[in-house]
Design a binder for these strands. Structure first.
Lengths: 163, 163
DNA sequence: GAAAAATGCTTTAAACTTAAAAATTCTAAG
DNA sequence: CTTAGAATTTTTAAGTTTAAAGCATTTTTC
């Protein structure tokens, strides 16, 4: 029996490359399923879109607000994208734009008191939904998965191919 | 020491609910990072969008083609969404629409020979990219993760809250 | 300090996305 | 057969998304 034959017979188990591709597809499908569910519930129960919720969640962590660029980097969406979402949140009086004193190019964005109040309500419900959707994962499994996924996103956009 | 006090002191480790929320955020961020990278490379190297690639990948598995509804269910995107993507693929001559004989409501969509050829090239490159992006995961870890994520998406949109 | 480069944001054009409504065709109940 | 309901697709309106271009401002360089 040659090495080639043994290698071939082992191909019954998929190659590592194929297995990683399969992993990526599972990650993508899980993310889409959860996103669709959360989007629907946010819309029905709170009349807010998922991107708007994401922006508010980012702003809630920073009581002093964030600039547009900080927001777009944190949410991993393009620069101009944030402009439109903020426009709508501003016209709904959930967010305000403020010009910082030290840099006239930048715009600081923060939740209004009303925005914070609404977000707090939504965030509580949101956590419950996710808890239900991921109820198959116990604490140990969640920990393991988090460790595996942690840093992945950071590594990709930074050190990935350039390192 | 009361039960309340013991419960409180244990809160140094985050609650399972919070841990699941954190897991969801990691999944989402990983998915977005990989998507952004793949989208960019598809655009630069092949001049195709990610949704177009996804549709072609779905069609490649079915030599006899798929209906619009089958496509939208498989890709977990809305019905009308597929129409636009197919429109553009048809005008690029990568896909054809064919009316099936037995049901005049439906439309069968399949790759053209050229579409299949282009997809084969792209798919090879795509697998390599994903292999690189997920190079931190060895076979065992990929297996574990796949098992954990498997069925999650199916369970959510079907038996999730209704069961 | 003036020119050049970089940064921060918005605008634009094209594509994607969803939910809902409309149009067409099929299925089934009577 | 007729008709009510279901299924399949497209269309529509609003919002999201990206990449690229444009503007204003700041920083760097000489």
């Amino acid at each position: 029996m040659t090495i080639a034959m043994r290698t071939k017979s082992r191909q019954a188990a998929p190659s590592l490359s194929k297995q990683r591709l399969r992993l990526w597809i599972r990650i993508l499908r899980a993310a889409r399923a959860i996103e669709a569910e959360v989007r629907e519930r946010l819309r029905v129960e709170f009349g807010v879109t998922l991107p708007q919720f994401d922006v508010m969640a980012a702003l809630e962590r920073k009581p002093d607000g964030m600039t547009m660029t900080e927001l777009s980097r944190f949410l991993m969406v393009s620069n101009g994208n944030v402009t439109g979402i903020i426009d709508r949140l501003v016209s709904d009086r959930l967010v305000v734009r403020q010009a910082p004193a030290d840099d006239r190019r930048a715009i600081n964005v923060r939740l209004t008191p009303r925005g914070l109040k609404e977000f707090t309500t939504m965030a509580k419900a949101h956590q419950g939904w996710v808890d239900g959707l991921l109820s198959d994962f116990d604490a140990a499994e969640a920990d393991t998965l988090i460790r595996h996924l942690d840093g992945l996103s950071g590594r990709i956009r930074n050190g990935g191919s350039r390192a």
